[in-house]
Amino acid sequence: MSEQREHPVNKFLRMDRMPSIWCPGCGIGTTVNCFTRALTECDKDLDKVAVVSGIGCTGRVAGYLNLDSFHTTHGRALPFATGLKVANPELDVVVYSGDGDLSAIGGNHFIHAARRNSDILCICVNNFTYGMTGGQVTPTTPEPAIASTTPYGAFEPTFNLPHLAASSGATYVARWTTFHVRQLARSMRDALSKKGFRFIEVIAPCPTLYLRRNRLGEALHEMRFYKEKSVIKHGADTREAALDYRGQIVVGTFVDTRRPTWLEAMNKRMSTVLGEKFVPYALPTREPKV
């Protein structure tokens, strides 16, 4: 027997909260793995990394990560994160959100965070359903998938999240599936070291609700499906990256650019107009400033 080693993920987890609430085969844990590998490789001061999530299965990520973490209200992780980042620009703020949380109840915040280029990495685990509440239709559920609130099949057009992010102004946009663990970890690592509103969509299995209700088999079958149907197209036009029910999944890094973040833009404007009179925001300190 060799020496007992710690699981490399353990130091990033609140071990007193394990095991997770996630169902067998749920893809969220796999994305967390990739995220912790990205944290290992990105050379960040982990005390300065804050994870913010909303409500839902993916919303629980914040509670499991051994980082400063905030489990906010449904859909509002991004505006919370925006406030956190503006008030404490030294932090690396990561929002971990599900498809319903981010694009339905939080949809308005999503496009505006991208537009104003809030300096946030936003990871969206898209499993095409509201898992925590029992498998209802979301803005990403493709026709004709069955959900508990579309018992005869979904029929609304869906959001193409990478396109929504890109067209709203995100500076980094990528999509992977939970099959693409190495690429996903690398993508997260790259995105962590960039600035601006960065968006990574991860297609993930929800075996208990989405797969079961649609008779798509187990999570493992879904992973094989991702492997078979995914096509890597870096730099693809996000308009071409829409997902349908069981068709091709375009994955890759679609956008990787740089433009001023909200804070940079504000500082520039204020300096230009106010010159010497402009007092830039100082990091909050514990010491009372008298």
Binding site: R5, H7, V9, C26, G29, C34, T178, V181
Partner: peptide
């Protein structure tokens, strides 16, 4: 290669490389 560790959604497995001469 630790692919198992990357895939495992429950943090229940991982792999690593050990120098052969050590063991």
């Amino acid at each position: 290669c630790d692919m198992c560790g990357l895939y495992c959604p429950d943090f229940a497995i991982f792999g690593y490389r050990e120098k052969a001469e050590e063991t």
